[in-house]
């Protein structure tokens, strides 16, 4: 498992403000998104990431952390923060 190089250039504040040092783009992410980005930065795999979300956040019965993870990865892909063909493997 390799971390995505573009993610290493992200500066994330305690409040969830993200600065992309390569493009100058700024956006905010919530605590869940922050957990995912920080996991990706250090190369956490898919199963471990889902477990991290399941254990670290209060979930309702309808919540599906795997689906939320995929949707967030889609956002990161659109922002070119992860490669177009990046697949988060177990």
């Amino acid at each position: 498992m390799h971390s995505q190089p573009r993610l290493r250039d992200l500066a994330i504040s305690d409040s969830g403000m993200v600065f992309d040092a390569c493009t100058g783009a700024m956006f905010t992410i919530n605590a869940t998104g922050r957990a995912i980005v920080e996991g990706l930065k250090i190369g956490v795999g898919r199963a471990a990431m889902v477990a991290k979300l399941r254990d670290g956040f209060e979930l309702s019965p309808d919540d599906d952390p795997a689906r939320d993870l995929d949707e967030f990865l889609l956002l990161l892909r659109k922002a070119t923060l992860i490669a177009h063909d990046f697949v988060l493997e177990d």
Binding site: D9, F19, A21, C22, T23, G24
Partner: peptide, 21 residues
């Protein structure tokens, strides 16, 4: 290198940030 993050009505940079590209 710099990315403008705020522009005047003339399109001139009013704020910007140093980036690493």
């Amino acid at each position: 290198p710099m990315k403008k993050i705020s522009l005047t009505d003339k399109g001139k940079g009013w704020a910007g940030v140093a980036i690493k590209d």
